[in-house]
Write a protein that binds this DNA or RNA. Structure first.
Lengths: 339, 339
DNA sequence: TTGAAAGCGCTAACAA
DNA sequence: TTGTTAGCGCTTTCAA
């Protein structure tokens, strides 16, 4: 405390203090700090660098943001960063943003519409340069962003939303591949544990599941809806197990649900994959360490994060809105019955 | 796009536009927006509110931050938000911060000292009003924060660090309780899977483990160091299993490690808790859904997050630096051998 | 190569 | 109750 007082006599050190100390103008300090837009004589630059070091000068980002009209900040809204899928996404987005000099503001909407809206508004007010929204909604309310002309991209979005950048994964194809794998193990009664979205439209995973069943000429399986969480999966598992025409295999729309199903199956005194085979969606790390390890469709989270950031503030900025779809990849482990 | 163009003829709407539209001064707009510091006549206020709505005005946070010297933002630095413990912490911190009107900037240091330092610097430059640091270091480098007079609090900190606010959990007592529980099951060869910290000091969990063993008059067990991750635990588990004097019980310094150990035990053809009993530390949700479910010491994450935010920008701000220690609570499940 | 100065949008002290 | 205005720290144009 005393030492810092000695080093920096006054309160915050501004660019003016540096200029005075170095015997130059404030403009020159700016040139040195930003490496432009004008060149500075080496000797002068050294003096300035020295002053910066001695005074412990740190540029004020708020002032810079005000002047430039850019906060060099991106906002990310997820339903719940405690969900491994979103925590990975957040990490990847942060990395991608940092690579371009942007800092990340993370907010959770807790699957709550009012909160999501509040977060959007808050981010808009903070003049973030872009917002990535993994919405709980089908048709998110981006009015505030539009008015503020803040670029945005919808993540985790199954289908195209007119006028918005969006990034998603091919849910239907992924589900189809997973279900086909289950069919390949000889199952003919394949249930679906589906998460619930606030959406008017049938989820791609449900469509893919159904399609695979139909293509195989197998009867349509049971379907149970619930939350995209471990407890949600647990409940779904219990219901599927208790159903009259108990499935011999289940496709879960997320790894978290599958983890819950695993528990339900165990508690019912049965085993995975012996009594019930299981495949899921997401490809989170947790799926690799569960018992048995989950066969799952892995989403290319890093690539999606990079594409999203890029659309906002990278090469893709200013381009017309696009809907980018990524493929998922089958990770075969033991829950499906593979050795 | 066209509609927004109609609503807001010019680019960004400023407080000046609102003032002009409402036929008042900019000061009045300020008073209305901020609810003070001066009172405004109801009729005037209505006019202003109207103008705000019509023009779609949103205050510029950067300008406000510049003027006020506060960005109403908090920074959080964690090693890896993909770790369930930290993702929960981040969520809790966000909630606590939001309750006080602050927004959260999340950064990962990836257990990398240079990155941690860069993050600290970046946050300082952004004039955050406080920084919460879950450091990978024993003696973190907070020079930048000190110079900028930005309040900070060390999270996840086992011991007192002179001059810093810090918040931690009673590691030693927690570990002792867990190990005593294992002892209660009759185990006398209890190994330790310890995570590695960049610290000069013995971790409290190691001390607690040892103390419990000594107090019970039981020989000192094996200790294996590794990362605080699933793979780290997996490796540690393999080594413990392969050791000459194989333990019959293991205490893991984190749930993630315990998850890895679970896998190692299975792959060795043994069972938990039959062949090896297990207890761990953290109390994450994942511990509840593993198989078998983990007996673990639960950390009061929400309370810690609230205390941290409070020390920074709540009632505790300006108070002298404190070290707050929270207790952990034993969650008995099946991995220890309990039914 | 360097400097002077305008102005980004906002708050709040002061004046009316 | 409302208005005027200085100035927060920075960038950058324009002039020297």
């Amino acid at each position: 405390m005393t030492s810092s007082a000695l080093n920096t006599p006054r309160g915050p050190v501004t660019r003016k203090d540096v200029a005075r100390y170095a015997g130059v103008s404030t403009a020159v300090v700016s040139y040195v700090v930003n490496g432009g837009p004008k060149r500075v004589a080496p000797a002068t630059e050294a003096k300035v660098q020295d002053a910066i070091r001695v005074l412990g000068y740190r540029p004020n980002a708020a002032a810079r943001a005000l002047k430039l009209g850019s906060s060099e900040t991106l906002g990310l809204i997820v339903p719940d960063n405690t969900n491994p899928f979103f925590s990975l996404l957040a990490h990847a987005v942060e990395d991608a943003a940092a690579a371009l000099g942007y800092t990340l503001v993370l907010t959770n909407s807790d699957g709550n519409l009012a909160k999501e809206r509040r977060n959007v508004r808050n981010l808009a007010a903070r003049q973030v340069d872009g917002v990535l929204l993994a919405s709980v909604l089908f048709e998110p309310d981006l009015e505030d962003l539009e008015k503020a002309a803040i670029p945005s991209v919808l993540l985790n979005q199954g289908r195209e939303a007119a006028g918005f950048n969006s990034i998603g994964v091919d849910l239907a194809t992924g589900a189809r591949i997973a279900v086909e794998h289950l069919l390949g193990h000889g199952h003919t009664r394949i249930g679906l544990a589906m998460g619930t979205n606030v959406s008017s439209e049938v989820d791609g995973r449900e469509r893919g599941w159904l399609q695979a069943l139909r293509d195989a000429g197998v009867p349509e399986g049971q379907i149970v809806h619930g939350e995209f969480t471990r407890p949600g999966g647990y409940l779904a598992g219990q219901r599927l197990i208790a159903s009259a025409n108990r499935p011999t295999a289940i496709f879960a729309s997320s790894d978290m649900q599958a983890i819950g199903i695993l528990r339900a199956v165990r508690e019912a005194g049965m085993t995975v994959p012996g009594d019930i085979a299981l495949a899921s969606f997401d490809g989170s790390v947790e799926a690799e360490y569960s018992w048995p390890a989950l066969t799952t469709m892995e989403q290319p989270v890093r690539a999606m994060a990079e594409a999203a950031v890029d659309a906002l503030v990278g090469a893709g900025r200013g381009e017309p809105a696009q809907h980018r779809i990524f493929p998922t990849e089958l990770r075969v482990r033991q829950s499906c019955g593979c050795p």
